[in-house]
Design a protein around this nucleic acid. Structure first.
Lengths: 209, 209
DNA sequence: GTCTATAGCGAGATAGAC
DNA sequence: GTCTATCTCGCTATAGAC
């Protein structure tokens, strides 16, 4: 966000890989994969560079330092998350709840993305950690989006007004995160989509008047 | 478990700190705190040793290597978790559900322990990670305990037989873990005990015939 | 048991050539 | 843009003295 990188001007040469990916994007993609697999702290920038076939110093040319790379990864991959959540909840009320399994399906289809943020959150729990503020606001935004979806349902009369929208939003996000954790650790032990569907069903029962 | 440490024989000298803690126990306690705060990978054994006032080499005398220290920490702190879960669920049925907020209270009272395992799990998601197998079986055991609690309630007729005990157990554990994550990241944003109490209440409604 | 000394590696980052 | 060379640091682990 602030200063960060020399930002190579304009478009890249034709050398960039198969798809129109710039070297910078290749590096971000490689970093996302490795961070998801091993975490940020244990991944060396040299490993990331090697995955793309350049040296560590080439990587530093783009991102300045390791933290710059991390922020580039977060910025590039996390926008989609909130958008996805907004898309799912935009319908408001019961229709939004029914979309919950789509979230699970998305994780199953893209475990690397699911793992990336789960791992990074735990590496940034404490104030002062490089991306702490980012994740704090990320979760606040997600809770806010879910809470609005619930209050929308209450205002339309589809949801009972006796439920505390704020606590319910917390609960729903807790389920999503915790389900994710268990599934990442032990994918064969549970059918994430089935579990999410079951949860959504029961959830609807507690929300409906 | 296997070989590990020279295991200093017999009891310790009177030099061990205020409480009857042996040096080994002091080191485990210091490691638990630091691992909880910074994670395993980013904590150096020298930091752990320094927290107790000895050198890194003294620490290695007890644990052999860094992985030995990790396993000592896990063995010492994790036994309590499963016991606690068993205690809470032993009652079976609705009474067990009502105990859920106690779990939250325990975390609030001991954030360091809550953080320790949350962080270590994410550092051991992948097969081959030093403590991967430990956490896989840990979660399997926890799910099994919760599942048994539910089936016990179903057999006594207190819980509806239409719910899938296995999926419900997964859901309950997901809530606990996810609630924990959100609260660790941003403690002021939510009242963990209130949220857990609300969840337990709604949970009971979906479980009761 | 705890120390000093030290080996040996891998990390992040800078300087400067091409 | 990407490289080679290099600096500096921190880390794990070993050897051996006390």
């Amino acid at each position: 966000m602030t200063s960060s990188s020399p930002a190579p001007t304009g478009r890249q040469g034709r050398k960039a890989s198969a798809r129109g990916e710039s070297r910078r994007e290749e590096l971000i993609a490689a970093a996302a994969t490795l961070f998801a697999e091993r975490g940020y702290a244990t991944t060396s920038i040299a490993d990331v560079a090697a995955a793309v076939g350049v040296t560590q110093q080439a990587l530093l040319y783009y991102f300045g330092n390791k933290v710059g790379l991390l922020h580039a990864v977060i910025d590039q991959r996390d926008g989609a998350s909130l958008e996805f959540a907004e898309e799912l909840t935009a319908l408001g009320g019961p229709a939004a709840i029914e979309q919950l399994p789509r979230y699970a399906r998305r994780n199953v289809a893209n475990p690397s993305l699911a793992s990336l943020f789960a791992v990074l959150v735990m590496e940034n729990l404490r104030p002062g950690d490089v991306a702490h503020e980012h994740f704090v606001t990320r979760y606040r935004n997600l809770r806010a989006v879910i809470e609005q979806m619930i209050t929308a349902g209450q205002e339309s009369g589809e949801f009972s007004r006796t439920v505390d929208a704020r606590l319910k939003a917390f609960e729903i996000l807790a389920f999503i995160e915790g389900a994710n954790t268990q599934w990442l650790l032990d994918p064969d032990s549970v059918d994430l989509v089935a579990a999410t569907t079951a949860y959504a069903t029961d959830l609807l029962r507690t929300l409906t008047p």
